[in-house]
Each structure stands twice: as C-alpha cells, then as structure tokens.
Design a protein around this nucleic acid. Structure first.
Lengths: 230, 230
DNA sequence: CAGTCGTCAAGAGCAGTGCTCTCGTTTGTT
DNA sequence: AACAAACGAGAGCACTGCTCTTGACGACTG
C-alpha cells in the first residue's frame, strides 16, 4: 500500500522538481521579477491553475528557489574548500572567497535572490536558516582550525563588552576563537560579500576590468585583517 | 514669451516632480516591485496613459528615482563628513560610515534600488555616473588628505602590477595616494557597503542586535586596515 | 467487489499591470 | 488668425497572480 501511495507521491515529487527546474531556468534568464507562474505552466503543458496544487503562491516558489540557492552556494563553497590541505589556512580562506565569487558571477540572478534586495514581503526565515549558514559554517571551521593551530595573529584591539550578547551566537560556529577575532572574521565576511555584490550588481562596470585579480588581491589583504599570516 | 513658455514648462516640471514624489512614497512603502504607474496616476487624479507624457516607461521612472537616491545618499554623506574637523581623518571616516549606514536603514527600499539587485534590464549608466560617485568622492578626498598629512600607515604589500590599468581610474579620486593604499581603501569601501547591505537586506536578523555598536567596531577595525591610526 | 473520499487538471473569471493608439482640447508660436 | 505641438482622456491589448467550480481519475475502506 505504501508502494501505491508512493506512486502518487512520486509523481507529485517529480512534477514539483520539474516546476522548480523550469522556474530556475526562467530565473536565470529573466531575473526574479520576470518569473511567471503562467510561463512555467505553459512550458510544462499545464494550465496555470494547476501549478497552485504544488506551490500555493508565487512567493512560495521563490522561497523554494532561495533555499535551493543557499544550498547550491553552500555546496560549492564546501566542495572548493575541502580540496585545500587542512593546514593551509590562507589557502582555505582564498578558496572560500573564490568559490563565493565564482558562484555569484556564474549565477547572478540566483545570487541576487539570496543576497540582494528581498523581493517579496519576506521569505520564511525558519525554513531557510539551515541552508543559509552552510557557507559561514565553513568559515567558522576554518577560523577555529587556524586559531587552534596558532596561525592567527591576535588583534591589538579588545572586543567591546557591550557586544557580548551578540557575539555568543558565533561561539558555536567558531569554537575556541576569542571575541575580537570573531569580530574581525565577521568584518572580513562582509568584505567578501560586499565585493561580490558590487561585482555581480554591476558596481564595477567601466571601473575594474581584471575583476578576479583585484578580488584576489583584496581578499589577501582581508586575510591579513583576520590575522592569517601569508 | 519666455514667461509664457515657462508657464507651460513650469507646469510640466511641477507635475514631473509630483510624479516622482508620489513614486518615491510608493517605493518607500511597497518596494520597487510594487511601484505602479497606474497607482501613481490614480493618486494624482490622472488617467494612467497621461503619465507616459512625462515618463515614457516604468523603467525611466525608476531610473529617475535611482538618480535621486544617489544624490540623496551622496548629500547625506557629504553633509555629515563636512562637520568633522579636517585633520581628524579617523573621525571623518567614521562619519562617512555612519552616514551611509543610517541613510540605508532609514531608506531601505531606496538603498535596495541603488545598491541591491538591478531591477530592470539595466539603468542608463551615463545619466547616473555623476550622482553615483558623490559618496566615493568624499572617501577619495579623505584618503588624499590623510595620506598627504602623513596620517596613513603604508601597507607592507605591494600593489600587483597587473592591476595597474585598473587603478589609474582612481588616481583622480585620490590624488597622490599610492596604489597599494588605493586598493586598501577600495577594500574598505566594499566592507562598508557589504555591512550596510547585510543589515538592510535582513542578513543580520536574529543574529546581531546592537547593529550600530557592531558596525562602529567593525568600521574602526576597517580604519586600521586602511592605515588610519586610532 | 462496490462505494466513497481525496487529489488532480482544466477552464472561466476577477482585478490588476505596462503600454499603445486615437480623439478632441488646450496652449504657445508664427 | 492660423497652425503645430503638447496634453488629458478613454478604449483596448496582452499579460500577470490568484480564486472558484466542475468533472474525472485514483486510492483506500466497508
């Protein structure tokens, strides 16, 4: 009986996947604003109302694509970073940086969906929280490894005590890392995504040609900010 | 005769301004996606087709709002930075940072319009280029002043020679500043906007509560990256 | 085996959108 | 006074997200 029920549910899962696949292709070509449920239905040979059996609204489809985007980016970061020797902390950092940047320029619309302006009212936060921290978790392990290996030069400044309640959430991500280093890592994180956002969103157009080279240099400087020795 | 001609043109200018004002209010409440020419026309008591006498398309209206946004942000940065003594370079840097952040959190949708994902195909670049560099011009003068006053600690690393063609464009913005400092300033610039984008786009929700305090600390660290002494 | 109940695709329809075209009217210029 | 440009109004096209209803098929239960 489970077999027959799964027969039904399997068709449903397949159609759901087909919808998201087509939607992702539309997203890649038209952007988030051009994503149309009717166009997806048309391409599937369905009538538009049938889509609503699978996604109750356009925003729900977008939310599914957002989660997929987080996972795709997170997986790209994990995979690239895993290829670098564990002791090469600077190399791991640079691998993370280039993975983020290359995924962003390769999938600009998906990047815009997850790191650009939030398109609908708001996406469901609880559903996305597992997928969204995959990339930052990689940085956390990296920082933790580097610190415990003594490869991080301690910053001169102290972490402001009034930020204590805010920094506790990061202790799980970077076990053993002192607070002032955590704040520097977070600052570096914003540098990384600030750069990629600038590039993906066209802020470097007619300004910087050798994007990868400039990015590489900037991320090396940023590595120095975290205290990762060359 | 010019008086009579200006009579007509004055009405036109007033109506154009009224359209952009209403559009900006709609943008602030609904976001870029919810901006509707018909709704603007409705609020003005006009018929929708009449709007097209003033803006040939929705994207043109958005472009006008983008230029306005760049100018508003640039003016806010200029005004805030001008209040700090010229010799207090760190203070000027922090003033710039807080001006950007406060404008961004106060006008999230406008910020998203100019620093988020590009909504239409592409906005006219030549029309916006004058307004868009007002903020970065402030940083340029600040860096130039600080360097010439000897207040910038020179970085250890050299600027990569393959980036020479890209860095020349910044020499006008920061006269006299050596290339490696320019790249550090650009890196700091991405840190600033990366942070503000993270905050405005909700990436810090349920993560950081004392946004201003964390931002202040992060921008002080970043000042050290540029070489601005404490 | 027969009946029932839930799932599904299809179609019509509503309200809204950007944009185009045409038609009188108003306004400014020669 | 005559002409041309600019203008507001209205109708209309193609499109969107979304809702509701109808009829058919499949799966589970008596």
């Amino acid at each position: 009986m489970t077999a027959s029920r799964t027969a039904r549910e399997r068709v449903r899962a397949e159609l759901t996947k087909e919808i998201t696949d087509i939607a992702r292709r539309q997203l890649a070509t038209e952007g988030a604003g051009g994503l149309s449920l009717r166009a997806v239905a048309r391409e599937m040979g369905m009538v538009s109302s049938a889509i609503y059996r699978y996604f109750p609204s356009r925003d729900d489809l977008l939310t599914a694509l957002i989660i997929d985007g987080y996972n795709a980016l997170g997986e790209a970061v994990e995979r690239t970073e895993a290829e670098v020797p564990r002791a090469d902390h600077l190399g791991r950092w640079l691998a993370v940086c280039h993975a983020v940047r290359e995924w962003g320029v390769a999938h600009p619309h998906e990047y815009a969906l997850i790191y650009g302006s939030p398109v609908p009212g708001y996406q469901a936060p609880q559903d996305t929280v597992e997928a969204r921290i995959r990339d930052v978790a990689v940085l956390g392990r990296l920082m933790s490894d580097a610190w415990q290996a003594g490869a991080v030069r301690a910053p001169e400044e102290e972490a402001p005590r009034e930020l204590d309640p805010d920094v506790t959430g990061f202790h799980d991500l970077m076990p053993g890392v002192p607070d002032n280093v955590i704040w520097r890592a977070l600052t570096a994180w914003t540098t990384l995504y600030g750069w990629v956002s600038f590039e993906v969103f066209g802020q470097f157009d007619n300004t910087i040609e050798d994007r990868r080279g400039a990015f590489e240099h900037s991320m090396r400087v940023t590595a120095g900010t975290i205290g990762l020795a060359q």
